[in-house]
Nucleic acid binder design. Structure first.
Ligand SMILES: [Mn+2]
Ligand SMILES: [Mn+2]
Ligand SMILES: [Mn+2]
Ligand SMILES: [Mn+2]
Lengths: 216, 216
DNA sequence: AATAAAGTTTAGGCAAACCTAAAAAATATA
DNA sequence: TATATTTTTTAGGTTTGCCTAAACTTTATT
């Protein structure tokens, strides 16, 4: 499988989870920073290879083997992110871009040994679960901070937006995985929330509260 | 710089060190497993980019900036090999192929942090020196076992042939970096040598003695 | 010196992964 | 329903890195 095919599979996987139904070439190409015509071409190739189901104008869906392939790449991505954060002192927002490259290295032994070296981690530094070698993922019940009520308390277990700017913001505010967040109150006019984190109170915008996941 | 350009630069560097003068397209293409016509094409491109000096029918030579680029890739290759051997329990002969992929990952921070994580190693697992971040390499005076006389003693500091089969042979014979090798005698008819390694005596063929480096 | 052999370059193609522009299909609007 | 808009596909190019076959240059042999 080529680097490009791998990136397409991974993208289709994410977008399928996010939107439910078939992924359109428009959405897919935008996600990958390419043009719709390029997505159509690649989708046809993946369909011929038996990795996706594609019908013109109906979008694309991963099938069994495509999903397994996608999860193997995601496994590698998340293990490398864990390595970069735990062993090489990369910060939350720096790991993703390098992992985008490392996830394409081809060596079963490498990924197996890396997993062992890291102590068989279950989650990456953003709180996302790491699939096992067969592509099995454990689901977590998680809520967005925006879904909590004043008085509720949750533990930060991940983020939705993984952009550098958002992760840097969280870093500045000292919000990390494991941070305990208590809702103090909710402003109706802009849907922002006042929350207590450790012993500090701060105001989080709606966009922020929608992008932080917590376990209750 | 593309993956292919990087591989060509690295190959030209090695072949230039090995043979002295300009590297012919024939030698270069064979080394890379490609056809001479492909080497000619790439060499022209590298020349236009100012990384090599090339004159038709006269072979190719790295210039200043080409050599620095080559050494940076070699630095990454050797740091990754060290990582694989020291941290991930890869054996002597398994590291090279994976490092061939990892050396092309683009991130200054990654290689800097990896260096720190490994404790700023000076040599890779095959005994080859690791260039510093500016592309500076320390030379070692080393001899081939074949250059020693009966009675001489040397410490194994590296190998010339890094093929899997040779490294596996060394592993079987328990010859590793740091092994002390004493020459017992020399057979004139086939240029093989009887040597003592630790408390064992064994016979090494001419090919073997020419591919093991020692410090005296 | 003439010819043969070996090495090197040029010419013309091919596959992968992109692109733009035009055509076609699906969806929304009047 | 007819028309306009949006989405998607198709057609035709481009770039990178590879190839084969033919032409050309250099080196070796007679
Ligand atoms: Mn990531
Ligand atoms: Mn990727
Ligand atoms: Mn190597
Ligand atoms: Mn390489």
């Amino acid at each position: 499988m080529t680097l490009s095919e791998e990136n397409y599979l991974k993208s289709i996987y994410s977008l399928q989870r996010e939107h439910g139904k078939g992924v359109s070439t428009n959405v897919l190409s935008k996600y990958l920073g390419a043009k719709p015509a390029s997505a159509t071409e690649m989708i046809k190739k993946l369909d011929e290879k038996g990795l996706v189901r594609y019908q013109p104008y109906q979008g694309v869906l991963l099938n069994e083997s495509g999903e397994i392939s996608a999860l193997k790449i995601i496994r590698k991505h998340r293990l490398w992110e864990t390595f970069l954060a735990q062993k090489l002192d990369f910060s939350w927002d720096e790991i993703h871009d390098v992992a985008e490259q490392l996830e394409h290295i081809k060596s079963d032994k490498l990924i197996h040994e890396l997993d062992r070296f890291l102590g068989y981690p279950k989650h990456d530094p953003h709180g996302d679960p790491i699939p096992d070698e067969h592509g099995h993922v454990v689901k977590m019940e998680k809520k967005r901070v925006s879904q909590l009520q004043p008085g509720d308390t949750g533990t930060c277990i991940g983020v939705n937006d993984t952009s550098s700017s958002f992760l840097q913001f969280l870093e500045q505010q000292n919000i990390i995985l494991g941070s305990v967040i208590q809702i103090i109150n909710f402003q109706d006019f802009d849907k922002s929330m006042t929350v207590r984190i450790e012993d500090r109170e701060l105001i989080l915008s709606q966009i922020a509260t929608e992008n932080i996941y917590v376990r209750i």
